[in-house]
Nucleic acid binder design. Sequence first.
DNA 1: CTTCTATACCTAGACGGCCAAGGTAAGGGG
DNA 2: CCCCTTACCTTGGCCGTCTAGGTATAGAAG
Lengths: 109, 109
Amino acid sequence: MDSRLLWGTVEMLILEVVAQGPTYGYEISQTVGERSRGYFDLKEGSLYPALHRLEQQKLLTSFWDEVDGRRRKYYKLSIQGQTTLDEKKAAWQAFSKGVNGVLGAQFAG
Amino acid sequence: MDSRLLWGTVEMLILEVVAQGPTYGYEISQTVGERSRGYFDLKEGSLYPALHRLEQQKLLTSFWDEVDGRRRKYYKLSIQGQTTLDEKKAAWQAFSKGVNGVLGAQFAG
DNA sequence: CTTCTATACCTAGACGGCCAAGGTAAGGGG
DNA sequence: CCCCTTACCTTGGCCGTCTAGGTATAGAAG
């Protein structure tokens, strides 16, 4: 896949997954992979910096937990996070519609 | 609009417009704007470097013409350009489908 | 004549998110 | 003991976009 296309969508994908319930980095990348039928393979170098940005922007809150001797940093969506997610989804649909408009595609967002 | 989303799609949009017939930079940006119903506003700092890249990669060929005292650099799609355009459109649809899969959207590409 | 808008091209430099590649650490199977 | 999986993190490079600037012509407004 063309990784350039990813620009600007990684944060939306993360927020969307976390919106389903508290989860952690490793699981997020797996969920994104599964839900896209293997299309996405979120790299750690994209995933963790993105999580840190989102937390710093207070769109996510985090807490550490340990399961079977493994440290996990769980993330939860904040109120602002939900608002931002809604905005990002709207922006995505507008963008997608714009691209499809130029392509003359019959399907729409 | 979130310009980050644009990454990787500008070249596809340009190729698509040029595929309709020979045209030039200024007109391309207008066409993209119109066909996306005003959503896209291709900046010159993105447009011209992209055109030069595409020409250097031999996906586009160019020739100068003058109309009403105005120099225009016309671009034409090459055979390889058409192939690349097809590939980019397929990649876009796969990407779009992947995103929508994660979003759990009902619409598909 | 000057000024403004539209047309039409170009470029240098900054920005910033993604990726490759590296590191740390624990559990479990071969 | 080694290797794979899980689970986190960071550094540095890459490269396409944008900002902001430049050049030039035509036509309209003042």
